[in-house]
Design a protein around this nucleic acid. Structure first.
Lengths: 343, 343
DNA sequence: TTTAGCACTCATACGCTCCGAGTGCTAACA
DNA sequence: TGTTAGCACTCGGAGCGTATGAGTGCTAAA
């Protein structure tokens, strides 16, 4: 599927204009706005081709064209000119961020806020959370009475001691033995790495004490979940109203409703690979966000933890500006967090 | 301003119905829905009186009546029947909350979530923050090179050590002397309690080292601000769309925009006195929320810290249900947090 | 004091027409 | 063969007048 130079030029014109105006682009508009030495009729022919090829679509017969999902994708992959933030903007960003040094939460909240003001879209972010968290040490201690102490240390050194109350506590020898078993099975692994067999082995060994098994294991899983996930932020939610496609209450409602659930935000941010990730339209896999695009980027704390920040906006978002904003901010976050931790 | 029994009855009917339907209530509707042995015409006369007295108003000539701000206020103060959550509801609430024990953030997030589902309004909450935080100890230590260590302990025992880098560090003797001065001036007080004179005295004494003065003092203030304010939560933001008065994009935008700024949320929650507080309409003092009501309640952690939770909804909110939900949840939070800290 | 009756008001929904931007197609042109 | 002008056609949206119905205030009778 090769596009002629001229077709590329026209596609680019349509996407650029549509990003700015949110109105379908007609053939005459293109001739007027970009200096192309062709008549509207020719543009029309080319646009009809582009439509056949799947890059453009018509909202209805007598309107102009708008980019299709494939169109945006092609634009992002091959056509887009990278924009750079102005010197003044980067300088401001640096200073604002620097002021929040020292407190991780505040730093990330500020970063979200900066990006949301810079791009005028909604920003979501997740505080650094452990990558590949494993158990370093796990111990069970009978505390006397109906109580047990479960003590876990994870690979980044966070210690958790939890008192567990049971209606019937196994005898001390069993507890010690089971503690050893847990330690052997789990050390160096995350609870989620356990195989079916290992789990049922653990259950079998404790078959005389089902309540004991249930509480210990569920606590273990729960705490790993918990400590693996940091806070979640959203900023500039109101920005969604600046885009005419969201003047529709129903859509706005879906959007806000989605963001109301922190799990959803986490899910969106979790997706991406190691660096910048662009999901156009339904590529994000959420029915509620089918006409949104999501650009996410990650930043790191050492090599053990990773945080994410992402921009959420209409499909016709200004990808180029969003991308460069995210690049600058994650650079800066990497730098500042490194300083915070290792200096 | 005494209301006859009959007027009270009619006012109550209007408020009750309007809370449910969000439609102006006409005289016939009242006769139909509440068994009152009067004709619509009589009701009309009474309603005209109530309007003259300021309890009701008309959106336009040929519509029914809706309660005015004063009408709601009277309703809340004298007419409202307290509702109770069902046994089943309280039981569920207890269980859900119990599961989040152990982590303050999760506990409060869960509480917000519960209330927002219970009432179908937007809920805002603030994690416990110190009441009347003061300085217990403050010390300055020269670290050699261009560095100083500022060490503060506040009245609830949180310690903060901050390295301060200066382009020119005063000599050690000065630092020790100034450290003593700071300690004498500040101990037992919050930085905000300092009088103008005390501040300028501090500044005068350090007049040879303006950078030193500025950094130390601003750090001190900043940290006190920071440690005095916990996280802020919002849940059920999407609920605002369930109320027909917010089918207007402009209003929804104002509402969401307001919630986008955590300072705003904090401000709303800060207002109330010691227990339950009801602000109807513009009583909350925010132009953006002039047609909203806010009900806030506080919960305590010992006697040193206080958190708040509040419900934000249209003026015609179901006050009775909101109040009882908040009562139950703050009771429960008080209990659980006490357990968390002191058991 | 209460009620029935009646004229009046006004927001809303509906149907109608008009307008303009944009298209596709055809035929002429370079 | 690629480009352009011309033209008929489509369709969404704005503007407008009318009908509808819920609700009111007033008056006069019960």
């Amino acid at each position: 599927m090769e596009l002629s130079e001229r077709k590329k030029q026209i596609l680019q014109a349509v996407v650029d204009d549509y990003i700015k105006t949110a109105e379908p682009i007609g053939s005459r508009t293109i001739v007027k706005r970009h200096d192309i030495n062709l008549s509207p009729a020719t543009i029309r022919n080319e646009m009809a081709d582009l439509e056949d090829m799947g890059f453009l679509e018509k909202p209805h017969t007598s309107a102009g064209r708008i980019p299709s999902k494939t169109g945006y994708r092609f634009y992002v992959n091959s056509l887009m000119r990278k924009s750079k933030l102005s010197l003044e903007e980067t300088e401001k960003l640096r200073m604002a961020l620097e002021e929040r040094m020292g407190e991780m939460d505040a730093l990330i909240a500020e970063a979200s806020n900066i990006v949301s003001r810079l791009t005028a879209y909604t920003v979501i972010a997740a505080a650094p959370r452990a990558k590949n968290l494993t158990v370093k040490s796990i111990k069970l201690l009978p505390l006397g009475g109906n109580n047990l102490l479960l003590s876990i240390i994870n690979s980044i050194g966070i210690v958790k001691n939890a008192g567990i109350e049971l209606s019937k506590v196994p005898d001390d020898n069993f507890v010690y033995a089971y503690s050893k078993l847990l330690s052997e099975t789990l050390c160096g692994k995350s609870p989620h790495d356990l195989s079916e067999e290992q789990l049922s082995e653990l259950q079998r060994k404790a078959s005389d004490y089902p309540e004991f098994y249930k509480k210990v294991i569920s606590y273990l899983f729960e705490w790993f979940e918990q400590s693996a996930r940091g806070g979640v932020y959203a900023d500039g939610v109101v920005n969604i109203f600046n885009h005419p496609e969201y003047n529709d209450i129903e859509r706005a409602k879906k959007f806000i409703g989605f963001l109301d659930d922190k799990e959803n935000i986490m899910g969106l941010l979790d997706g991406g690979g190691d660096k910048l990730d662009i999901k156009i339209g339904d590529e994000n896999g959420r029915e509620e966000l089918a006409d949104c695009s999501v650009v996410t980027a990650n930043y790191n704390v050492g090599d053990k933890m990773q945080g994410s920040i992402g921009v959420l906006g209409p499909m016709r978002m200004d990808y180029s500006r969003v991308i460069s904003s995210l690049e600058v901010i994650t650079d800066r976050l990497n730098f500042l967090i490194y300083k915070m931790f290792f200096e």
